[in-house]
Design a protein around this nucleic acid. Structure first.
Lengths: 350, 350
DNA sequence: CTGTTAGCGCATTCAC
DNA sequence: GTGAATGCGCTAACAG
């Protein structure tokens, strides 16, 4: 038991090693300008006492905190946790700690998290805004003196850079693919149509349908399995039942798949299915599900990389390097053709 | 642009509001013992200047950091990210921030993360040790003066409390279930047999098989789809092919399912399948997969709750409350009976 | 109710 | 090569 209480401090180490605090400081910062003998001794004492520098004290000295923050809707969401993992890898490579918090898409919690992270004096901030159109959030973020990047969703009317999936194009290509298969009545099941990403995907669907002169059939009611089942049964019982379904998010895809399965609808024979966003067992299901795949890890990685570029660019001068910094990065999707759309007819038993 | 540089400080607020620093400090800490008029004015100034307390300075004063750390193998792993999410909710409720880091099951990275979190002076630490038997880690953790809890895996020979799934019992019950179905040649596909959890599950399988006088058939070679396919094809081609497969982890379950599917093996008719650990589409697959379900969120929640109990118990006295603190929490599993084991024969087409 | 002051642990001048 | 002194932003005594 040490006399005081908590963790060992630098000056305790200094005293124990019979040197000044400066020397210890030098040792833990690389050991330059320290006599080899002294260095070894101090290192040994540090080891023995289990000394670890107090991060707070370093931060207080005014330098960078070597900490960045990311706010995502949920830690448990595979999309965002993969983004976060990729971002964390970049942070590690830049000798920084990534702090992940969850907003649950609630602007109130989101703001709370922003403030917590700012209190921790993060060097930079990444977030997936709960509401792309919130001008309140926009103002707050634009006032910040640290680099801020948006991920997955932009902030309207702002100069805040963002890294996005090209949702519009991905959805358009997917819809076109369905059209090329010859489907005429292609229903779009959105689910949660307030999100930016979903709206972009809707635009993509509309653009493709309009270009092909086909009727746009949208259903925004999908919220859970029950609503999906109801929607699909209604559509199938209608006068002009759909011959293909395009779902705009993972959960909708799965709900639709289950509803189709429950009603013994042959996929893709009677109704084809194509979903936006890939998921782990999409290729294992029978039939395997054709999807629009997002470059998940890349999103997280690229975002973090840009953030650190900005951090390094700023250097000592407070100038934010008014250079040709990218304001928007659009990452392309990939259409993964599996059986549910009608490709691979051999495997498409159901 | 303010004169200096970075964020507003408390004393700047004090000056702007024409009060002392103490008053501002009181205001941001609840506003007690402050005249209502003053309170309102200071609050307004804080708002106007966008002041946020510097967390580092507070930490330096020596109080709690209101920060806890958790080290998991991967942020992107559904099991651990759900744990983390649950733990974060508890942390939030206790006005604390949870910092999540990933060890990738590498003891080296794990130790690095421990040190980073200790540098940040977390109030408590939760971790899923990469190696349960590491005595080096045990010594380090036992030396710590903050509460430490282990999650999912214990630390051997230590008094460090842990919150675990009852892997042994879960596996035993699952195996018994298979036995009750009448299967005689039940193969156990482990995958990655060095982990504590897997070994416990193996023990459970063995215990049940031994009690039933059935032959224990273990295969620890499953690492990816290829190895699973090879293993299963070999087993099926053997003299005494299995009539049931018990997989000890998620990926093994899925690989086995795919291999079975690929070989057109009727499940459960020809070979039954039961997996340890539930996964999102287990009930959607055909046949739906019977699994041993772990109380994922509960694990994260309970762990964090115990941690905060200890934090609150310690209070001012440095005594770690030598009371009847639980040393080990064992959470029970649930056998989710679906079609792949032979239950629900009607639905078990394949 | 309010202001003054000291000091938390560290990096950093500036001397030696 | 090394050490003594200063101050980062904040809270917690102590006065008033």
């Amino acid at each position: 038991m040490s006399k005081k209480s908590g963790p060992t401090t630098l000056s305790e180490v200094a005293r124990a090693a019979g040197v000044g605090t400066t020397t210890v400081s030098r040792v833990i910062n690389g050991g330059f300008r320290v006599h080899p003998t002294t260095l070894a001794r101090v290192k040994r004492v540090i080891e023995e006492m289990g000394y670890l520098p107090n991060h707070a004290a370093r931060v207080l000295k005014g330098d960078r905190t070597k900490t960045i923050g990311i706010i995502v809707p949920s830690i448990a969401d595979p999309f965002f946790s993969s983004c976060a993992e990729a971002a964390q890898a970049v942070a590690r490579a830049n000798d920084s700690l990534l702090i992940v918090t969850a907003s649950h898409n609630d602007p109130h919690i989101e703001l709370e998290n922003v403030n917590i992270l700012l209190s921790h004096r993060v060097d930079g901030l990444i977030l997936a805004p709960a509401n792309s159109r919130s001008q309140a959030l926009r103002e707050i973020l634009e006032r910040l003196s640290i680099p801020v990047l948006t991920i997955d969703r932009p902030i309207s009317n702002s100069s805040i850079p963002s890294v996005l999936t090209n949702n519009f194009k991905g959805a358009r290509i997917a819809t076109q693919h369905l059209i090329e298969h010859g489907y005429k009545r292609i229903v779009c099941l959105t689910g949660e149509s307030t999100l930016y990403t979903i709206q972009e995907r809707m635009r993509g669907y509309r653009a493709a349908m309009e270009a092909a002169g086909l009727p746009e059939i949208l259903n925004t009611s999908i919220k859970d399995y029950k609503s999906a089942e109801y929607a699909i049964e209604s559509l199938l019982a209608g006068a002009e039942p759909p011959d293909a379904i395009f779902t705009l998010k993972n959960s909708s895809t799965i709900f639709a798949f289950e509803a189709l399965q429950k009603n013994s609808v042959a996929v893709p024979k009677t109704v084809a299915l194509l979903g936006f966003d890939d998921f782990e067992l999409a290729s294992t299901l029978k039939p395997s599900i054709t999807v629009v795949q997002q470059p998940v890890e890349e999103i997280g990685r690229v975002t973090a990389e840009i953030l650190f570029e900005q951090l390094l660019g700023k250097d000592s001068s407070g100038a934010t390097m008014p250079s040709k910094r990218t304001r928007q990065v659009m990452l392309e999707t990939l259409l993964i053709q599996r059986a549910s759309c009608g490709c691979m007819p051999a495997a498409a038993a159901s």
